[in-house]
């Protein structure tokens, strides 16, 4: 099952969004983020994307690995993946 952890600002923006519907997701992390941004609403999408690009101050980890050190938006997500989305305020910043 894909599990997702959101930082508090993202969590507030995604209130009411049931991310469990993506538990069986398989694909790339870019596709995953696009899909959850659609159901998360405009404010949630605004926090994830700047236009079509992932925000530089959003840190995305798949199974504990910063996607910049993996395949970027093409990093694969499997049904067992863990995805962490947190603001890059004290460490990782920029894609």
């Amino acid at each position: 099952m894909v599990t997702v952890t959101l930082g508090s600002v993202l969590r507030q923006a995604a209130l009411g969004v049931d991310l469990r519907r993506f538990a069986e997701f398989e694909g790339t992390v870019g596709e995953f983020l696009t899909q959850i941004s659609v159901v998360g609403g405009p404010r949630f999408r605004q926090l994830l994307f700047d236009g079509d690009q992932l925000r530089g101050v959003l840190a995305v980890y798949v199974d504990g690995v910063d996607i910049r050190y993996a395949g970027g938006a093409a990093t694969p997500v499997t049904r067992d993946s863990r995805i962490d989305l947190i603001p890059a305020v004290a460490g990782g910043a920029g894609f």
Partner: peptide
């Protein structure tokens, strides 16, 4: 690395009422 430690502190700060000085209180 430090960046790994930092990510973990950020995530722990989401779960526990700990004021991480350079994350929560940055």
């Amino acid at each position: 690395t430090y960046d790994d430690a930092n990510r973990i502190a950020s995530l722990v700060g989401e779960r526990l009422p700990i004021g991480f000085v350079n994350v929560t209180l940055r």
